[in-house]
Amino acid sequence: MNESVLPMLVPVAWYQVLAAVLFAIGAMGVLFRRNILVIFMCVELMLNATNIAFVAFARHLGSLDGQIIVFFVLAVAAAEVSVGLAIIIDVFRKRGTVDLAAANILKG
């Protein structure tokens, strides 16, 4: 371990604060931006925030299970990105834009 290199003096609550700030920034991005690609990147930011929270709690509890969860989050994020980008390309082909206001086919 790298205890000698990096002394673990930071409380886990500060990691949670960082994760919450990152999640809030991502959520704001999803709600503020109109570009579908950027909204997708903000979803990645939110997933990243949960990853930080998982790893920090895994460290806090002295267990590796939280890090395993991060692996599954990574797998789900990869699946989500591949399907989502395919949908974005399809929307762009149909509408000629990636503005969210153009994706209103399902609007009743």
């Binding site: 409380p11 609550a13 949670q16």
Partner: peptide
């Protein structure tokens, strides 16, 4: 988060558990 840090479990404010032995 502010409430968690201020009034939460005091163990959260301690240093991080060393996982080296695990």
């Amino acid at each position: 988060i502010g409430l968690l840090v201020l009034t939460g479990k005091p163990s959260l404010l301690k240093s991080i558990h060393p996982a080296a032995e695990l």
